[in-house]
């Protein structure tokens, strides 16, 4: 498989309480171009797992392998998008998007062309010379997305990227990321605690539970794109996910097929 997570286990030493498992052994295989959502409540280790794949953190035991190579640190081939955007406030939109290209010493004209292209892709051309503080949360996350895509990584890792956005903006960002995923054929691993978001976006949902953090199950979402958030099939899968978290009461009438 493209990404193999094998017996990955992570523990931290906590003062007075010795060692605590943040993530129980995880085995997970992810294919190239898949859209995976890691779904669970806080403390379920979903961000820990994402950090292991990103290379910001190493497993205590086990390993993460990408394309046959064990992950030992961050790489430009898998870019992480953070909930609080991580934009550099002293740089304009374009200069933020150019960041990695500068580090790679790309020719200045080429750099500008790529930055313009991706700024256009996320629909922010009109704001290319604005500073992040002049933009709304949704727009800032679009900049972060453009900046990540400009690196042209194979894998995008997204850590609750829309968690700080209001519900409406959030849905339009979900549409946006789905469109870009289909257009650019990236492998996306997307951390969220929003069940609908996971059902709308994922090919497969990795359901995680907390204390200790572990993978409970993996649910396939065999729905055609672009998905209808109010369709019967959508709601059926959503209910299955609710049931996985034991959030669904049994006496509910089953009016769907």
């Amino acid at each position: 498989m493209y990404i193999s997570i094998v017996e990955a286990y992570r523990e931290y030493s906590v003062e007075d309480r010795g060692r605590m498992a943040a993530l129980e052994r995880v085995n997970l295989e992810i294919g190239k171009g898949e859209f995976i959502c890691l779904l669970g409540p806080s403390g379920c280790g979903k961000t820990t797992l994402l950090n292991l794949i990103a290379g910001f953190d190493r497993p205590t035991s086990g390993f993460v392998r990408i394309n046959g190579e064990t992950v030992t640190g961050p790489s430009e081939n898998r870019i992480t998008i953070f909930q609080n955007y991580g934009l550099l406030p002293w740089r304009t939109v374009l200069r933020n998007v150019e960041l990695e290209l500068e580090a790679r010493k790309t020719d200045k004209k080429e750099r500008r062309r790529i930055a313009e292209e991706y700024t256009e892709l996320v629909g922010l051309s009109a704001y290319k010379n604005h500073y992040p503080s002049q933009l709304s949360g949704g727009m800032q996350q679009r900049v972060a997305l453009a900046r990540a895509l400009a690196v042209d990584p194979e894998i995008l890792l997204m850590d609750e990227p829309f968690g700080a956005l209001d519900a409406m903006t959030r849905m339009s960002m979900q549409d946006e990321i789905e469109r870009i995923w289909r257009e650019k054929k990236k492998t996306i691993i997307f951390v969220t605690h929003d069940i609908e978001e996971a059902v709308f976006l994922a090919d497969r949902i990795v359901i995680m539970t907390s204390f200790p953090g572990k993978v409970k199950s993996v649910i396939d979402v065999p729905l055609a794109r672009k998905r209808d958030r109010t369709g019967a099939d959508f709601l059926k899968i959503r209910d299955r996910v609710f049931a996985e978290f034991e959030l669904k009461t049994d006496d509910e009438p089953e009016y769907y097929l």
Binding site: E76, N84, A103
Partner: peptide, 16 residues
């Protein structure tokens, strides 16, 4: 810390 993570991810090393 997020700036340092971004830098790390984007391959920005010292002295840059």
């Amino acid at each position: 810390a997020v700036y340092l993570k971004v830098a790390d991810n984007f391959g920005i090393r010292q002295p840059q």
